[in-house]
Amino acid sequence: MKQEKNTKIQVRDLNLYYGDNHALHNISMDIQENKITALIGPSGCGKSTFLRCLNRMNDLITSAKIEGEVIIDDKNIYDKDVDEVAVRKRIGMVFQQPNPFPKSIYENIAYAALKHGIVKKGASCDELVEKSLIQAGLWEEVKHKLSEPGTSLSGGQQQRLCIARTIAVQPDVILMDEPTSALDPISTEKIEALMLELKKQYTIIIVTHNMQQAGRIADMTAFFHMGDLIEYAETETIFINPVEKKTEDYITGRFG
């Protein structure tokens, strides 16, 4: 199962069932390292479900049954000897609604890193918090109020705090589930700029319902429809010269 050099995640024949409902059909795709991959499609198409398969968040839904392989670093993360907790540590996630913990800004970032033993309490932890906040572009705004609760920040700041929190665990991949849909345009712009910066170090996969956003930031785009992966190609190709009729219809706004 050797992967191509620049392929980070290899998905093979992935099927997902919620009870009797067959939600994802035979998805196969290669996701490239240090690129931003956008998953687009009308709501209910399975793009968020697919995203959650990549760090085994669907394990939390007892009715969900998953078949197929998701190979990361030559290892299927659904193998029996793989610990889903270790998977989630390596593959971080940012959610649609900013969800900072009801703790201080500092603790929000330090919490998981301390638990994972990445740093010890003290100077090294302070350093990590600062580094993560700088990377998330939030340091200047919060450096004088690290002990204030994370929930006291504005929506856009909260979302960047959540990104900083994810970075602090030092993952390889960051999954983002419509990270800007709850934010205003200015905050959205900041987060998009941040993503372009972050892809130098991380592989980013983003679910978005906003096609313009995919066009602006994604290197690769995958179009999902009713649980099928219809088309997956470079973003330009998808937007300018799609192969499939359905993709074209969606891009041109005929449905969705």
């Binding site: 990361i72 670093d73 030559d74 290892k75 993360i77 193998d79 029996k80 000897d81 793989v82 610990d83 907790v85 270790a86 998977v87 540590k89 390596r90 638990k115 994972h116 033993g117």
Partner: peptide, 22 residues
């Protein structure tokens, strides 16, 4: 559980997790 047996070819093996799972 098989997750507790270290495997050199398992990039997701993390010994520190055993204590946390316990």
């Amino acid at each position: 559980m098989s997750r507790s047996t270290p495997k050199s070819d398992n990039p997701f093996y993390d010994a520190s997790l055993n204590a946390r799972h316990f």
